[in-house]
């Protein structure tokens, strides 16, 4: 006579989680042990009773009621969030593209990139020049960009900050969108009452 089966084994037997050998062992035991057979059969009855849990039908117009609420309330929210998301993705994409083009061209022409600070400074001084004295600005651009390589270098130095700015903006928008999306806090199961 083997030892009695504990409930855990019987549960796993009902769940079909036992190996072939273990199943044989349970079957062999309950065939000769009325106490364990009764416990197994009682558990099985409980399982069947649970499977017969009552389920209720919904009113016929329930789907329509839900959908009218969904159509009435939800689209605006969904639209703005989805739109922000698309916009952010677009900006990130353009930023990356610009970055690749700028770095690629600089590499192609073997031109050293000025540092980021220098580039930004250069762009702002040049923009200021455009504002105050457009002709001088054009002069600077033509003289300083006299050689092709220099022009490319400057192009890169202007495009890189622009690309980085776009990337930063895109990522920021994406984060804001994520924040907006988590308006509903998901409590964990264990925090239920």
């Amino acid at each position: 006579m083997t030892t009695h089966m504990d409930d855990e084994i019987l549960h796993r037997y009902l769940d079909g989680e036992l190996s072939w050998e273990e199943r044989q062992r349970v079957r062999g035991h309950v065939a000769t042990c009325p106490a364990c057979r009764d416990r197994l059969e009682a558990l099985r009855s409980a399982e069947y009773a649970l499977r017969n849990l009552a389920a209720f039908d919904l009113p016929a117009d329930f789907t329509d009621r839900v959908m009218s609420r969904v159509r009435r309330r939800a689209p605006t929210l969904l639209w703005t969030r989805a739109a922000v998301s698309r916009f952010a993705r677009g900006i990130i994409f353009i930023g990356l593209l610009l970055l690749v083009v700028a770095v690629g061209e600089a590499w192609l022409f073997q031109e050293d990139l000025p540092s980021l600070g220098e580039s930004v400074l250069w762009v702002f001084t040049w923009l200021g020049m455009v504002w105050s004295d457009p002709e001088a600005a054009l002069d600077v651009l033509t003289t300083e960009g006299g050689e092709v390589a220099t022009t490319v270098g400057m192009l890169a130095s202007t495009v890189v900050p622009l690309a980085l700015a776009l990337l930063a903006l895109g990522l920021f928008l994406y984060m804001v969108r994520r924040l907006a999306a988590t308006d509903y806090e998901m409590p964990t199961a264990s925090s239920g009452p």
């Binding site: 409930d7 855990e8 549960h11 009902l14 769940d15 009764d38 416990r39 059969e41 009682a42 558990l43 099985r44 009855s45 409980a46 399982e47 009773a49 649970l50």
Partner: peptide, 23 residues
């Protein structure tokens, strides 16, 4: 999850036995 299911089965087994409902 499994523990919850097992617990429910055991409670129900006891409840059915207490009502004299035998398999």
């Amino acid at each position: 999850v499994k523990t919850h299911i097992h617990r429910a089965r055991e409670l129900l087994r006891t409840a059915l036995e207490n009502r004299g409902i035998r398999p």
